[in-house]
Every structure is written in C-alpha cells, then in structure tokens.
Simulated assay, not measured.
Amino acid sequence: MGSITIEVIQDGNIEMCWPLCDELMAFQKSKASIAPEVFDTMNFDNRMKRSYERAAESQVVVVKDDGVPVGYVFSTIDEINNRQSAIPEWAPVQDPAVSKGFYPDWDCLPSKVGTLNNLYLRDGYRDKGLGSKLFNLSMDWLESFPDVDLVFVYVSNGNDDALNFYLSRGFAFSHDVFGGFIKALYRTSRRK
C-alpha cells in the first residue's frame, strides 16, 4: 500500500468507480447461492449510475492508493412515493405480488429514505479499518438530512461478512428482497 487518500467526489464524475462497481458485482456473484446468474446482468450502468442519476441526493466517497481507486461507498437519498418503481429490470422476480421489492410494506414507511447502496474495497484493502471509515462517512452524510429518519442497506445473498458488518453497526433485518436474493436491513437515524 502506498499513500491512501479518501475523497468525496464533488464534480459528479463517478466513472472512476466503474471497474470497482463491476468487481463488486462479480464478488457478489461469487458469494451468492440464490440466482447467482442475475449478477451477470448487473453492472455500473444499470446499478450505480442509474441510481446516482435518479436519486434526490447522492454521495460517492472513493478510497485511492497512490491516486488509483481501490474502494468506494455510494449513498443516496431517495423518494419512495411509488413503491412499484423499486423493482428494477434486473430483478429475479418482477411480480410484487410474489415477492417483496426493496421497501417493506410497513404502513408507516416515510416518503424519503437514505440508502447505503454500495460499499466495496478491493482484496488487500479489507480488514484495515477503511470499510469502517467509509461506512461512517456514509452514515454521517445520510443522517445529516433532517427529513431522513430511516436508512436502508441491502446485502446480497451469501455475503455473510457484509451482513454481520451492518448488523454489528446497529442495523436490523427488515425483509427478504426478491425471494431472498437480497436481504434488506434498516436503522433509524441516530440524530434523534
């Protein structure tokens, strides 16, 4: 490891995360026991870029080693007035009557939520505290919005290390997304 820097992308140029996002999809596929082939249809364009462009607010924080991106965290503030729109075209189940989408069917679900969408570090950069730093930066940003009291994170099936990471940081299980393809976790804002 060389000189490690952590920087917030200010200019909207998230393309530097393209290879990392695609690596994340391959990593998730390697862990998955439910529909691993679905990850073949997921990539930077239809996952990160689309979410970034559609979100009410977005933040991307990148870890660089000697100027080369080696990890990132991507977070959004989303308006969820239309829960049907929460089912993307890559989803293994398209019928919401058969399977829950990203958001639970709580009666008290707010119209605006925070989401920690992706947190990824290349092999060799894990277990060095960088994931915790990225997580904390994301949560600080998400919880800085006074009208966002609920934060979601979604963990792909088979990624037990990530699941345990988020559970140890105050998240709780909400529901299975698309029949267990993804686990939805949530936590209320610590601002309160």
Rank of each mutant, 00 (worst) to 15 (best):
T5S: 15
T5H: 10
V8G: 01
Q10K: 13
Q10I: 05
D11I: 07
G12I: 08
G12V: 08
N13I: 01
E15F: 11
C17T: 15
P19D: 11
L20P: 03
C21W: 00
D22R: 05
E23H: 08
E23N: 10
F27Y: 15
Q28D: 11
S30C: 01
K31R: 15
P36E: 09
T41C: 04
M42K: 12
M48L: 15
E53T: 14
E53P: 01
R54S: 14
R54D: 13
A55L: 08
A56P: 00
S58F: 06
Q59W: 00
V60G: 03
V62D: 07
V68G: 00
V70Q: 06
G71L: 09
V73M: 03
S75M: 09
S75I: 03
D78N: 14
D78H: 07
N82S: 12
R83S: 07
R83Y: 02
S85K: 14
W90A: 02
P92A: 03
V93I: 15
V93L: 04
Q94K: 14
Q94H: 14
A97G: 05
A97V: 09
V98L: 13
K100I: 08
G101L: 09
G101S: 10
G101Y: 06
P104N: 09
D105F: 04
W106T: 10
D107V: 04
C108I: 07
L109H: 02
L109S: 02
N117C: 14
N118F: 12
Y125R: 05
Y125H: 07
L130H: 07
S132E: 14
F135M: 10
N136A: 10
M139N: 07
W141Q: 07
W141K: 01
S144L: 09
S144M: 08
V148A: 10
V151D: 12
F152E: 11
F152C: 09
V153Q: 02
Y154M: 11
G158I: 06
N159V: 03
D160R: 09
D160G: 02
L163G: 00
F165P: 06
S168P: 01
A172V: 14
F173K: 09
H175W: 10
F178Q: 06
G179R: 07
S189L: 09
S189I: 06
S189T: 15
